[in-house]
Design a protein around this nucleic acid. Structure first.
Lengths: 133, 133
DNA sequence: TTATTTGCAAATACTTTGCATGTGC
DNA sequence: GCACATGCAAAGTATTTGCAAATAA
C-alpha cells in the first residue's frame, strides 16, 4: 500500500462526512453513501474511514458508546456526549470549563461528568515499545 | 432483579479493581481474579463490572481503544491515553490544561490532542426520549 | 426454600480481513 | 498492465444473553 488512488467510493464517503453535522458512525455513513453507490460494502466504508483518519482528513471519536464516531471538523473543539442516547454535540474550547457546562445546563442538559483527556504517545512507546491501534 | 446478593465473585472482582493501579479492562480483571477463583467465567466478570458501575462503586472509561477500562478511583480526575499502546495514566484536574500537558511532555509524553468531554443527559432524553446504555 | 447468580456456550455488535474481481493511473 | 481498491463473506474482538445448575439469604 504505497500509492493512493482517488476512487469514487472514497470521494463520496468524505463528502458525506463533511456534509453531516452529527458525528456519524461508520454505519451511518454506509447508509447515506448507499443512496449514491448502492453496491458499496460496509467493509469499504470502514477501510476508507481508516484511510481518511490516517490522512488527517477526519477525526475518530472514541467516547460515546461502543461504535466509533467520526468528525470532519478538524478545528480544536470538544464534545458533549449523552450517556443515554449517545448523541454528541460540539463544544467550543476557549472558555472556562465550568462556564461552558453551565451554558449546557441552561440549555437543558444534565452534566454528570466533565472529562479532560489528553491523547499522545507515552515514553515507553516513543522509545520503541509495542505497536499500536 | 431486585435483591442484591453478596457473592464471592463480586467481592473478589471489586477487590481486584481497587487493588489495581492501571485502569484494567474486563479481561484484565478476569485474568487476575482467576488466580483466586479458577472457575469464574468472563460473563460473570462483565455482569459484575456492570453492576458495580451502576452501584457507583467503579467508573467505566470509554476512551482509549475498543475495550472498556474501569477505574475504582471515584475522585474527580482525568486521564492521559497513549494512542499507541492504550495505556491510561491519571491526571489531576486542578491546574490549567496547558500547564498539565507541559508536565506530561516533560515526562516524555508526546501529546497529540487534548480533549474536554462532558457526559450527561441531553434535553431530549431527559424529557422522555429514547433509552440508553 | 427460592429467587438471584453462576458457568458455560451461543448469540450479538462492531470491526477487520482474505480473496477473487474490478479499476485508476 | 499492474498495483491498489472493491464487494462479498468469513473471521476476529468485545460484550451480552439464555439456560440449567449452584448458592446466598
Amino acid at each position: 500500500m504505497v500509492l493512493r488512488r482517488e476512487t469514487k467510493q472514497k470521494r463520496v464517503i468524505l463528502e458525506e462526512i463533511e456534509k453531516s453535522t452529527n458525528h456519524p458512525t461508520a454505519r451511518d455513513i454506509y447508509n447515506s453513501v448507499r443512496q449514491q453507490l448502492p453496491r458499496i460494502s460496509l467493509g469499504t466504508v470502514y477501510r476508507n474511514m481508516d484511510l481518511l483518519v490516517r490522512e488527517g482528513k477526519i477525526k475518530r471519536l472514541d467516547s460515546g458508546g461502543r461504535e466509533a464516531h467520526f468528525d470532519a471538523d478538524l478545528s480544536e473543539h470538544h464534545h458533549v456526549t449523552c450517556v443515554s442516547c449517545g448523541r454528541i454535540d460540539d463544544l467550543a474550547t476557549s472558555q472556562e470549563l465550568k462556564v461552558i457546562s453551565e451554558t449546557f445546563e441552561q440549555k437543558g442538559w444534565v452534566i454528570h461528568e466533565r472529562r479532560v483527556e489528553f491523547l499522545g504517545v507515552c515514553p515507553v512507546c516513543r522509545t520503541g515499545g509495542a505497536g499500536g491501534r
